[in-house]
Simulated scan of single mutants.
Amino acid sequence: MTDLHDDDGRYALPFFLWAILLFQARAWLLLVMAGVSQQQGEELLRLFVPESTTLYWGLGLGLPALICLLLSGYRHRYPRCWRASRYCVLLSGALICLWQLSQWNRSALEASPVLLLLTVFDIVTELMLLTNSRLRHCFNQ
């Protein structure tokens, strides 16, 4: 067996796929962390997401990545859904990039470079999903 396959002979999902999916589902991760931290959950949400509409947008746009994460364990049972999930993740990633670009203004970028960094990382993840042959191959088994 090569390092590209697991013990059962199936194609192993690359680390970058997990990182990309977790990055796109970051609003869901923040919501879970706030839920686990019962006493300071609301403060944690206000610290990272000052506006509630931003959290709702993040949850909505991160949903395809979350579904893809959950579907990854059943990718051999539901191959059509698994293949379609790549396009859903690509589309939601493009929408995340467009939404973040619409949030750009001079005062926001001067106050904190986080929005710029998140946008750059989102563009890099989109390019990796489009161009990386190993990431493409894991959806076309």
Rank of each mutant, 00 (worst) to 15 (best):
L71C: 04
W82M: 00
Q38C: 07
Q103G: 10
A34P: 10
T54Y: 01
E43D: 11
S133A: 13
D7M: 07
V120N: 00
D3F: 05
L22P: 00
W104S: 12
T54G: 11
G35R: 06
P50R: 00
L69T: 11
R26N: 14
L70W: 08
H5G: 00
L91H: 00
P64Q: 01
L127R: 06
S112G: 03
G41L: 10
L98E: 05
Y78V: 12
A65D: 03
G41S: 04
L17M: 09
Q100A: 08
S72K: 12
L109Y: 03
R83Q: 13
A94L: 15
H5C: 04
Q24Y: 12
D6N: 15
D7S: 14
C138I: 11
P79H: 06
S37N: 14
D6L: 05
N140E: 13
N105L: 04
A65K: 00
R46A: 14
Y78T: 06
A84Y: 11
F16T: 13
V114Y: 00
L91A: 15
E43A: 15
A108Q: 12
L55C: 04
E110Q: 15
T131N: 06
P14R: 02
C81T: 06
Q103K: 09
T131Y: 02
D7W: 03
F121P: 01
S133F: 02
L61I: 07
L95C: 14
H76S: 09
L44A: 09
L13P: 02
A108V: 15
L66P: 05
S72W: 07
L55G: 03
Q39A: 13
T131H: 02
G41H: 08
E42I: 12
C88F: 12
N105M: 03
P64K: 01
A19M: 12
S107D: 11
A25P: 02
L129G: 01
W18D: 07
A25T: 08
L47V: 05
C138H: 00
R46C: 07
Y11P: 02
R46T: 13
G73W: 10
E42N: 09
L109I: 14
G73N: 10
E51G: 05
V32M: 09
L45M: 15
H5D: 01
G73Y: 09
D6M: 07
L45R: 05
L109F: 02
S85Q: 08
F15G: 06
G9Q: 03
L31N: 02
L135C: 05
R136C: 08
L71K: 06
G9C: 08
L135P: 00
G73R: 12
W18A: 13
A94P: 00
L66K: 05
T125Q: 04
V32L: 15
I20G: 03
L22T: 07
I96R: 04
P64I: 09
L118G: 10
L109V: 13
Q141S: 05
Q141Y: 04
L127I: 13
D8K: 12
S102T: 14
A34L: 08
I67V: 15
